[in-house]
Simulated assay, not measured.
Amino acid sequence: MTTYIPQLTLPEAIFNSLPASILLPIALGSAVGYSTRPKEGGTSRQYDSLRQPPLRPPPWVFGPVWTTLYGMMGYAAYRAVHFGTSPLNSASTIAAARHGATLYTIQLGLNYAWMPLFFGLGRPVLATVNILSLLGVNGYLAYLWGNYVDETAGWLLTPYIAWLGFATYLTVSIGHLNGWDLSHIAAFKGDKENKKRN
């Protein structure tokens, strides 16, 4: 089992508030996506400039999918931590809920790092390491919460894990098809910023 690390865990007040639990990942995910995308041309232009694998969805799919998944993971976190840390539960259930809260916070950080690594820096190898770590952490988190805290919370993470599996396929495939060099999409953003300065 993992360890509860308060310094690496969102405040319990967030987990105890249903609106905060759901809206926080959505708001942070939107902020990262907005700040990472180029100001002109949009992420879809960068995305379309890459050699793509089969089954790739159109760029407009990602926003609604991620908003839904962030909401579901936020609700799972609320259920697991809010109900799991109730004094009516056993010490082992409370410990598992708190350990999961630390894992949940870590996975949020990994999640929000993917887009800057892939699009902002054009580093598909680092993005692949990131998303594989994210997949592993969430698989374990679903197991931990689902088996020791709240079965519904574990199942709520299942669509997220499935999407992460698909996103891993896309990350690895795009990296491979483009020679593991996406510097031109990172440079695309820099070129736009340089033109604005001149």
Rank of each mutant, 00 (worst) to 15 (best):
T2G: 03
T2F: 14
T2R: 08
I5K: 08
I5E: 10
I5W: 12
Q7K: 10
L8T: 13
P11I: 15
A13W: 05
N16L: 12
N16I: 07
L18V: 14
A20Y: 04
A20L: 14
I22H: 04
P25A: 14
A27N: 06
G29N: 00
S30G: 11
V32C: 11
G33D: 10
G33K: 02
R37S: 13
R37I: 08
R37L: 09
K39G: 07
K39D: 15
G41L: 15
G42V: 00
T43E: 11
S44M: 05
S44V: 01
R45I: 10
D48F: 14
L50Y: 05
L50R: 11
R51P: 01
R51V: 06
P53R: 09
P54A: 04
R56V: 09
P57I: 01
P58L: 06
W60L: 04
G63I: 07
P64V: 09
V65K: 00
V65E: 01
T67G: 04
T67V: 05
T68F: 07
T68V: 01
M72R: 15
G74P: 03
Y75D: 05
Y75Q: 03
A76S: 09
Y78C: 00
Y78V: 09
R79Q: 10
A80K: 00
H82I: 09
G84S: 02
T85V: 05
S86G: 09
S90M: 07
S90E: 04
S92E: 15
T93R: 12
A95V: 14
A96K: 00
A97K: 07
H99A: 12
A101I: 10
L103P: 02
Y104R: 08
I106P: 01
I106F: 14
L110A: 11
N111K: 04
A113E: 08
A113K: 05
W114Q: 06
W114M: 13
M115F: 05
F119L: 11
G120F: 15
G120L: 14
G122H: 03
V125P: 14
A127N: 12
A127R: 08
T128D: 10
V129W: 01
N130Q: 02
N130S: 07
N130Y: 04
S133K: 08
L134S: 01
L135C: 14
L135K: 03
L135Q: 07
Y140A: 15
L141Q: 01
L141P: 02
A142E: 08
W145I: 00
G146A: 09
G146Y: 10
Y148T: 07
V149P: 01
V149K: 01
D150T: 14
E151K: 06
T152S: 13
G154A: 11
G154L: 06
L156D: 04
L156W: 13
T158A: 09
Y160L: 02
I161N: 02
G165A: 08
A167R: 01
T168G: 01
T168F: 07
T171L: 00
T171H: 06
V172F: 10
V172L: 02
G175A: 06
G175E: 05
N178G: 02
G179K: 08
G179V: 13
D181S: 10
D181V: 13
H184R: 14
A187P: 00
A187I: 13
F188H: 12
K192M: 15
E193I: 08
E193Q: 05
E193F: 02
N194P: 01
N194F: 00
K196I: 12
K196E: 15
K196V: 15
R197A: 12
R197S: 09
R197E: 13
